[in-house]
């Protein structure tokens, strides 16, 4: 039982970070119709920037700077991904984000080399909660994620800019007719999503080191979380991220009990993501109308 709870604790933490990536994907998809393959790259950049900055500046400030930097990168990505009015289709945008993810990966390799990067956790000792070891870092991730998700939801509902984003998601045509520059909104959606992804890994890197090529698995996990809500609901993406995180940890934790899976059960982390995603999507697809 204790082992189970231990795994759940870790799962909730990594799941929260995935949730942020997934929420970002939902935000971009709903606002622009684009599926952002570079979402994982934003998370990796967040982690890498944080590792670089935290040696020189105080942790909190370093985190903020890292997130803002990645948000700026995100807005540039958004600008490129949206492409030319009337000429760039959503499919083309998808391929562009794929290209951008590749570009960022190779730049990361150049700048940071091929090795995992991490920085020390905020407290060295783990807390003992009823026999379960809880790293304060985990609590930090979960807490900040929750606050971020809430702030986002509030921002979208209460501020005029947020409402403009929702308007673009609800009806692009009407938003355009009203004078809202849908491409400018897309850039903001990308920036906010990038910042969210980065936030997750700024906090998670101490317990889940990043490497230059971590973006693919992060993107896939983020997408799985987003898919939980049909790429449409931020709330469900959040839940999806948590479910995914917990399920993955359970799979990895108990996998060595299943014969024949091989020594490196960790590799099957992604299989868990895929299976969960497929099951969920298949279940939802029954209620959806296909185009």
């Amino acid at each position: 039982m204790r082992e189970f709870l231990q795994l759940v604790v870790v799962g909730v933490s990594t799941g929260s970070a995935y949730a942020l990536v997934g929420i970002g994907m939902v935000l971009i998809f709903r606002t622009t119709g684009i599926v952002n393959f570079a979402q994982g790259s934003f998370a990796v950049l967040g982690g890498l920037f944080m590792v670089e900055l935290v040696d020189d500046i105080h942790g909190l400030l370093a985190g903020l700077v890292a997130v803002v930097l990645v948000a700026l990168v995100g807005s540039l990505v958004g600008f490129v991904a949206v492409g030319f009015r009337h000429r760039t289709t959503p499919l083309a945008s998808l391929i562009i984000t794929l290209g951008i993810a590749l570009l960022i990966t190779s730049l990361n390799l150049l700048a940071f080399g091929d090795r995992p990067h991490t920085y020390p956790t905020i407290f060295d000792r783990a807390w003992d909660v009823g026999g379960v070891l809880v790293q304060p870092q985990y609590v930090l991730v979960v807490g900040v994620t929750l606050v971020a998700a809430l702030l986002l939801t509030l921002g979208l509902q209460r501020t005029i800019a947020g409402q403009a984003l929702v308007a673009c998601a609800d009806s692009r045509r009407a938003a355009e007719l009203v004078g809202i520059d849908v491409r400018a909104v897309a850039v903001v959606a990308f920036a906010v999503s990038a910042g969210l992804s980065a936030l997750g890994w700024v906090l998670l890197t101490p317990v889940d080191p990043v490497n230059y090529d971590s973006d693919v698995r992060i993107a896939i996990n983020g997408f799985a979380a987003a898919a939980f809500g049909g790429l449409a609901s931020i709330r469900l993406a959040y839940v999806g991220g948590l479910v995914l995180g917990i399920a993955q940890q359970l799979v990895v934790g108990y996998a060595d009990k299943i014969p024949g899976l091989g020594q490196q059960a960790r590799q099957y982390e992604l299989a868990a993501a895929l299976v969960i995603m497929l099951v969920l999507i298949g279940w939802r697809a029954r209620h959806e109308v296909h185009e």
Binding site: I160, A164, A167, G179, I180, D181, V187, V188
Partner: peptide, 16 residues
Amino acid sequence: LLGAYGREFRHELVSA
């Protein structure tokens, strides 16, 4: 209100 907001847009959201 978005009807009024839309009028303030000149290619960029923050200034709008």
